[in-house]
Amino acid sequence: MHELIRERLEELLSGAPQPESGLEQHLVTCTECRDELAAFRQQSALLKTLRCAEALSPAPGFYARVWERIQLQRSASVWNALLDPGFAWRLALGSLAALLLMGAFVAMNEKAPPAPAVTAIVVDEQPQELGLDPERDRDAVLVTLATYRE
C-alpha cells in the first residue's frame, strides 16, 4: 500500500464522506492500493460483527456478588501462600535462622560481663543512672520532654 493511501487509511475506512480527488485518482489507477483497501474494508466489516448494539446491565445485586468473589479470592490467596511449598521451605529456613540467632545471643550474654546497656541514652546533664528505679526513670523522661521546647 502506498504512503498516500496508508496515511489516510483510517479516514477511508471510517467512510470519509468525500475522499480527496488525489486519493480517488490514485485508487482508480493503482490496483495494489485498491485491492488492499477493499480487503481492509472487508476486515473492518468482519470486526464490526463483535459490536454489541444493546445496552446491557447486570442483574440486581451485582456489586455484592463481585465483593463476595473478591473476599473468596483473597482468602484463597492467603491459603495458597501458606500451602505453597516454596513458602513452607522459606518459613522453615527463616525459623531455623531465627533460632540460631537467639541461641547465639543467649550464649554471648551469658559469657559477657554485665554491660552498662543504658548509658548510651544518658547524654544530657542528668548524671543519675537510669534503669534502676522505673518510677524515677519515667519522671526523668517526662521532665526531659516537658523542657524540650527549643
Binding site: C52, E54, L56, S57, Y63, V66
Partner: peptide, 16 residues
C-alpha cells in the same frame, strides 16, 4: 467504579 462501568463491561463481553 463497579457501578459506573458495569454496563460497559457487560456490553463488551456480550459483544464478544
Amino acid at each position: 467504579i463497579v457501578e459506573r462501568y458495569q454496563s460497559k463491561v457487560f456490553s463488551i463481553i456480550y459483544g464478544i
